[in-house]
């Protein structure tokens, strides 16, 4: 009993137990690291394809289409507005030349990285998708849901996108009004999305 409460025992015990648990975690981590990296790559790949409305049925197909340089051409664009570099993807989909841009902006808690795809003349948005975000689950986190993203499909750009208040439960379905409905309870996150999309439009137009 005394031995157990001695300082030396406490130090040795704490060291051993921390060491043992960390070794196990390191082992599990090294076993799954590759899979997690593939998953995060796939998220980016699928987001780009989704935004550009390129169909795929399996992960492998998505990967193959993304890596096919003859089909999806990747370039890096240096913006004249802020000198930052952006990844741009171009493809010929559904008889249209589509361009998409990956842009990162500040969200409510962390950064939001998203893809926005445009038609040839940047007159309309083809689609959007979220690559990564740390918004509040159940509130701002809903930007990843289909109904929210679908609001931007074939949306006319006009003088930029606006946020509107729709009386419908699932967002703004009018694709000619250059508007989308914010998420109830997550107005700040919706505003950040609005900012990133309009920023992407500016970068593409200049």
């Amino acid at each position: 009993m005394n031995l157990k409460e001695s300082k030396l025992y406490t130090v040795i015990f704490t060291f051993i137990i921390s060491f043992a648990f960390i070794v196990i975690l390191a082992f599990i981590n090294s076993m799954t690291r590759e899979k997690i990296a593939i998953n995060s790559d796939l998220f980016m790949i699928k987001a780009v394809l989704n935004a550009m409305k390129i169909d795929y049925s399996t992960d492998q197909e998505a990967y193959k289409k993304f890596k096919d340089d003859a089909f999806l051409r990747k370039t890096v664009k240096k913006s004249k507005l802020n000198n930052n570099e952006y990844s741009i993807y171009r493809a010929f989909v559904n008889n249209e030349n589509i361009t998409s841009i990956i842009n990162t902006g500040q969200g409510l808690w962390g950064e939001i990285t998203m893809v926005t795809a445009f038609d040839e003349n940047i007159d309309k948005i083809i689609g959007v998708d979220i690559i990564s975000q740390n918004e509040t689950p159940g509130l701002g986190g809903r930007i990843g849901e289909k109904w929210f993203k679908d609001q931007f499909t074939d949306e006319k750009i006009g003088n930029g996108i606006k946020m509107t208040l729709s009386d419908r439960k699932y967002g703004d379905t009018d694709h000619n009004n250059s508007s989308f409905d914010a998420i109830t309870g997550a107005t700040r996150t919706s505003e950040r999305i609005l900012f990133i999309i309009n920023d992407s439009i500016k970068i593409m137009k200049n």
Partner: peptide
């Protein structure tokens, strides 16, 4: 908790994304 987090990230990435920091 870290094991749960790693397993979700590796095998249920969508759910892991949805729960985020939780």
């Amino acid at each position: 908790v870290i094991i749960v987090d790693i397993v979700l990230k590796a095998y249920m990435p969508d759910i892991s994304k949805a729960l985020g920091p939780y």
